[in-house]
Design a protein around this nucleic acid. Structure first.
Lengths: 204, 204
DNA sequence: GAAGTTATTATACGCTTGAATAATATCGGC
DNA sequence: GCCGATATTATTCAAGCGTATAATAACTTC
């Protein structure tokens, strides 16, 4: 019996691979199909290694969730240009890969469904949601000011909640059943709706 | 050893109880925590009975999903009155119990997360989404006509997609973290946004 | 009220699960 | 080039999983 060959992964890299493998498994087989063994196979290692990098499977799952939130928000945070351009980009990003992807929404839903079960995941969700919404609120505040219609923080808050809801809702359905919509239809509907809600054009 | 006493449930009733117990378990423990044994305990029967009513656990889960979709949509389908009232009701219902409830969104998310895994669930989702959206589209068509601004089917379709997304998105966040919003805030934001999108008041 | 039907319980089976442990191969420092 | 440290594999374990089967208790019918 010959033992399986292997190489030691560089610092931190294996952790990342394991998290990525975890997400792959969750999106493909669901949370209950994402077993330690399945994840190990996907990562190209043996099951025992998981416990060398994480205290428990649950802890690994929680870290994987943090990675999902980060990937869903980071693209939206780092937009550049004048306020109108940034607002347009912020919206468009959600209807473009890799955010607009059935894998993303599967992961998002899988974790959402655990928010009630696991307080740790609930806290991660809450932070992610607020970060996303606050980014949007700040963006709206600048946009409205630039358009010569500055709004109170309270007003921006309401706009941010509405637009965040709109974008999220369209994002979910677009990811789940993209074939129900024409190319570019969702982003076009989103833009038009945001303009209507704000009562302003998002063009420069 | 004395055997556990029991009574025979009337036709269909036990099925319903088992489905309800399934949903309870999914919302409380997640899909992977909803085991046959847990579900049986919740329903007040023994595990073996599940297979007397359902061919398999998977089939029971699928039927449970149908029940969720039904509960989320039936409230919205059966609104009465003039078009404006019905439109207002349609929206408001989504921010009122039992639709607006963390249990509902947990169930919704749990199944959504399986859409990629299980084609049966994917089909159930698709039907439910389209039924909901088409109801809304019909409602919008009547509303716009009544307001003296009749719109083409294509226009109504776009409005329906947008408003459905908006309502869904707000519903999700409201259910997940209701404490982030003031009383009635979400329904108020939803109404205002819908009015902005349509460019019309929803009052009579 | 006895007989027949079947809903329900009880028990068992094979498999998978997350985790613990022991053996071993790889690598950095010297 | 050896040596200690540790990343990785291999193996094992008890618990829990979905399901199958057999015994039994509760109704129905006559």
């Amino acid at each position: 019996m010959t033992r399986r060959t292997f190489h030691r992964a560089p610092e931190g890299e294996r952790r990342q691979e394991l998290i990525e493998a975890t997400l792959d498994c969750i999106s493909e087989f669901g949370l209950k199909g994402a077993t330690v063994r399945q994840i190990a196979i996907r990562a190209g290692v043996t099951a025992g290694l998981v416990r060398h990098y994480f205290e428990s499977k649950d802890q690994m799952i929680a870290e994987a969730y943090r990675a999902v939130i980060a990937s869903l928000t980071e693209k939206a945070q780092n937009v550049e240009g004048d306020p109108a351009t940034r607002l347009r980009e912020f919206i468009a990003v959600n209807f473009t890969e890799p955010v607009a992807d059935s894998r993303s929404v599967s992961l998002w839903a899988a974790f959402i469904s655990q928010v009630r079960v696991d307080p740790v995941l609930a806290e991660i969700h809450r932070e992610g949601y607020l970060a996303f919404r606050n980014t949007l609120q700040e963006l709206l505040s600048e946009f409205l000011a630039a358009k010569g219609r500055p709004a109170s923080e309270e007003e921006c808050r309401r706009y941010a909640i509405a637009i965040n809801g709109l974008v999220d809702g369209l994002w979910v359905e677009g990811c789940l059943a993209g074939d129900l919509f024409r190319d570019g239809e969702l982003v076009s509907i989103a833009m038009a709706s945001v303009e209507a809600v704000l009562g302003l054009s998002i063009e420069n």
